[in-house]
Design a protein around this nucleic acid. Structure first.
Length: 396
RNA sequence: GGGAAGGUACCUAAGCGGCCAACAGGGUUGGAUUGUAAAUCCAAUGGCACUGCCUUCAGAGGUUCGAAUCCUCUCCUUCCCA
């Protein structure tokens, strides 16, 4: 399959498709790689599979000899992309951003070769930190209020009588400036990024550069069918353990499977169709294996699958239960649960107990005043809270 | 600068002097069922040394036996006019 065909598979919109075809031809003839920009703001400590879709497309370009320009938005992260948001997020401190930026590189490195020569990693503070107020004014002069207010998010917020802050309108301009600074030929992003990508294209044109081609990738929805986001808890982190990742994928709704197959795995369309024709559970197992294989290993995937069957289909205990040590003594059950982290508060622990969700050594305990006797050093009990959480508690 | 409407738990949103830890829906959590899918049903949903106690209804004061509810000031948001 040619590069352009593969690109089409992973994209939902290509602005300047004809231009892209010509660029690819020219690049091949002149042996000059295209500069393909992808920017990500280190606003959270975790990168998830949703982010992985454009990254995978970026890798595709890389495999074909082009140069990924990865922008870690340590400048833009301070502001935060208002896309899809109807509230302002609390501003991040430079320290938090730096912390996140480091882990981002590790996580993205699982999918993309970040070695020098085959990839360019930039931080946009390189230019934003040097701009003074008048530079900012100049940047603001690059667009108009009407143009920026066209954005869907802003429209919706204004209709709902919610605030739209001035600095939020700067975000697309900042992202556009990135494109100018790195002289991007192509920029990738999720399909909610179209507006921002367009801005880069326009700004480059104003600066006398060749406008970038904008490619957006379809959105990978979270396991519950909503937009994948950490705050919904429906995301699959690239850093997640193999068991966790496998379990998350298995909890995916059936409707989402087809998209997940095509966006989160490397499988061919034929292989995917074959899977989808079978039992949904088997298909999902195959999907989960594929995902875990890419981010961990085939062995880890096989192990995670077995573990999953053992735990949830056969309802056996997990093969390794975290062990917690406590001082010898008798404990009231709710406070012990809080102490070992199976509940956030004792009230929460009580609720679980009353709801029949707590077992000690396989026996359901419904009495909130139950005392766990761990008087002798070395004594231990197996505690289960809910379906997934286990702890082996031993007395010191 | 002038005028109007608002700020209630994770979100939406009732309550407008005692029956309020606060209606309802969403979400979340636990349970049943199941393919840890969907759908459905039940329950819980501020904290704690839990038949009680403590801290909440933007913030600070005040009125009252008693305030989320009334008054004063402050902070924040939106809308209209300039």
């Amino acid at each position: 399959m040619s590069l352009i065909q593969e690109i089409r598979r992973f994209s939902s919109d290509i602005v300047g498709e004809e231009q892209l075809v010509k660029m690819l031809e020219k690049s091949a003839a002149e042996k000059r790689p295209l500069r393909v920009k992808f920017g990500i703001d280190p606003t959270f400590p975790e990168v998830h599979l949703g982010h992985a879709v454009p990254i995978r497309l970026l890798r595709l370009f890389q495999e074909h000899g082009h140069l990924p320009v990865l922008i870690l938005g340590d400048g833009t992260a301070r502001l935060g992309d208002p896309t899809g948001r109807n509230d302002q997020r609390p501003p991040l401190t430079p320290e938090m951003v730096e912390e996140n930026a480091k882990t981002y590189l590790v996580q993205i490195g699982k999918l993309l070769d970040l070695s020098e020569g085959v990839c360019e990693v930039r931080r946009n503070n390189e230019w934003f930190s040097k701009m003074d107020f008048f530079d900012c004014l100049q940047l603001a002069a690059k667009s108009t209020a009407a143009r920026l207010l066209e954005r869907d998010d802003f429209q919706k917020r204004m209709q709902a009588n919610l605030p739209v802050h001035l600095h939020e309108m700067m975000y697309p301009l900042m992202q556009g400036l990135d494109s100018v600074k790195v002289e991007a030929d192509v920029e990738l992003g999720g399909n909610d990024q179209l507006f921002n990508l367009h801005m880069g294209r326009q700004m480059q044109e104003r600066e006398g550069q060749r406008p970038q081609v904008c490619i957006t990738t379809p959105l990978l929805l979270g396991t519950d069918g909503r937009k994948m986001s950490k705050s919904y808890g429906n995301h699959v982190g690239l850093n997640a353990s193999s068991d966790d990742m496998f379990g998350k994928v298995m909890s995916l709704s059936d409707e989402g499977m087809a998209t997940w197959f095509s966006l989160a795995t490397q499988m061919s369309t034929q292989a995917i169709d074959a899977q989808l024709a079978g039992h949904p559970r088997e298909a999902k197992d195959c999907l989960a294996r594929a995902v875990v294989t890419e981010l961990h290993s085939a062995e880890a995937a096989a192990a995670a699958s077995e573990e999953f069957v053992r735990r949830f289909q056969k309802k056996e205990k997990p093969s390794d239960v975290p062990e917690k040590l406590v001082a010898a003594g008798a404990y009231s059950l709710p406070s012990l649960m809080k102490a070992v982290g199976l509940a956030n508060t004792t009230s929460e622990a009580r609720r679980m107990i009353e709801g029949g969700g707590v077992r000690i050594d396989d026996e359901v305990i419904k009495d909130v005043r139950y005392l766990v006797a761990l008087e002798e050093s070395g004594a231990s009990v197996l505690m289960q809270a809910g379906k997934r959480h286990f702890a082996k508690i031993s007395a010191e």
